[in-house]
Amino acid sequence: MIKNDLGRKIMFVLLALLIIVTAIIIIVRRIDLKEEEGPRVVREVPGEIRTVTLFFANSNADGLLSETRDITSEGGLENEVKQVIAALLAGPEDKKGVSAIPVGTEINRVFRVEDKETVYLDFNRALVSNHTGGSAGEYYTIKMILKTIEVNFPQVAKVQFIVAGYPVNTIAGHYKVDTPLSVRKWR
């Protein structure tokens, strides 16, 4: 009887061990899977994720650098453009990149009128009033936005800059921006 009890105890211990080990395995594997998925892998997010390319200037003001971001692909072209511009305004992640968009600039709205190939970008006054000047600075303010639109939205041919509801002649006194600019040909 004593031996039997001992056997039962051993078996009970073994079974308990088995349950604990199995539980640990399940938990560990779940954690593993989560870790494996990491930030770079497709995440389980409702809606579609779209990877977009943003363009910033380099520190010498003689070229563009690209970075990628994920946006949610919903709400039509206007919404996607707005998300992309907002991501541009947030600035580069890479230290080599330089944002040529003035501090405090916000995008109020993005819309199209009859001409579906032209996108109107309505910024707040900071785009003009906070601009620190210099033609290189102004050139890349415009170029960063046009290049980003060109690459991510092939259906858009032109961009019209609007500041607080109205078109402006120039952003910082050099480049003509009072009419829509061709995203592919502007310079």
Partner: peptide, 17 residues
């Protein structure tokens, strides 16, 4: 006649448009 300006101190040089 203009002078240029950039967001970082390293950019420099002259150019004609």
């Amino acid at each position: 006649i203009h002078c240029n300006g950039w967001f970082k101190p390293e950019a420099g040089g002259f150019e004609t448009f």
